[in-house]
């Protein structure tokens, strides 16, 4: 199977899974921004993406994409280390056009996975998973907005999320154009276009995540529009 056995095939798998995850991140960021304007609309989205069969199927698919992307990242890294050999250069002078992110994709990826674990625990585990397993006191879909407020009231989480999002930005600025290059959709003209698109896309997506996290941390009571002043989470409990 060429997707497993050839170097280009393995990179194609990385590209396809990576670009699919970029699309998911874009959707997720758009969904988050809704919380800035309407608590009710955000909670409706949470309800739509609760423990329904289609949401569960999408979650499983998403999980598979993440696992394949991470697995192939480690396989490629091990193979590349072997190809480099055991001897290291005494002196290296990195050329200017070599971007820092391109040389540190695995390290950035590890930070992203750690952030993802925290994020899944904070939200997915306490909401969708608790609902699936029938936990005694799950955070209901209609409490999504208040749960964000609760989470980002903790400054430690805010700092961790900012670090996570910075790593994500670097990862995406290289990942998007590199994915298109690996799929062969690049060349003398499209290379610069993809580089530009990657920068803009990564910046917009990460900015949307960052704005929501910082807004909830700095001014939680200003958010959610007219319906943002819903019953505080502790009282609802």
């Amino acid at each position: 199977m060429w997707l497993c056995n050839s170097s280009i095939g393995r990179k194609v798998v990385m590209s396809v899974t990576g670009l699919a995850l970029v699309l998911f991140l874009t959707f997720h960021a758009c969904m988050n921004v809704v919380a800035l304007f309407s608590a009710e609309a955000y909670n409706q989205i949470c309800e739509l993406l609760g423990s329904n069969w289609y949401a569960l199927a999408a979650t499983a698919g998403l999980g598979a994409l993440v696992v394949i992307h991470i697995l192939y990242a480690f396989i490629l890294t091990i193979q590349n280390r072997n190809a480099r050999g055991s001897n290291r250069y005494d002196k290296t002078d990195k050329p200017e056009k070599v971007e820092w992110a391109s040389q540190n994709m695995l390290a950035l990826g590890v930070i992203i996975v750690l952030g993802l674990a925290l994020h899944l625990f904070n939200f997915w585990y306490n909401m969708m998973f608790a609902e699936i397993v029938g936990a005694s006191n799950p955070i209901g879909p209609t409490e999504g907005f208040e749960w964000i407020k609760e989470t980002f009231a903790n400054p430690v989480f805010v700092v961790l999320y900012v670090i996570w999002l910075c790593a994500l930005w670097f990862h995406l600025t290289h990942g998007i154009w590199s994915g298109m290059q690996t799929l062969g959709w690049s060349g003398h003209i499209w290379f610069n276009r993809w580089k530009c698109i990657s920068q803009i896309w990564a910046t917009i997506v990460v900015a949307m995540f960052l704005i929501v996290a910082l807004a909830f941390a700095l001014c939680p009571d200003c958010l959610g529009g007219a319906d943002g002043k819903v019953v505080p989470f502790e009282m609802a409990m």
Partner: peptide, 9 residues
């Protein structure tokens, strides 16, 4: 030989 990760080096 290794897999290309488009570092442009």
């Amino acid at each position: 030989f290794g897999n290309c990760t488009n570092t442009r080096a």
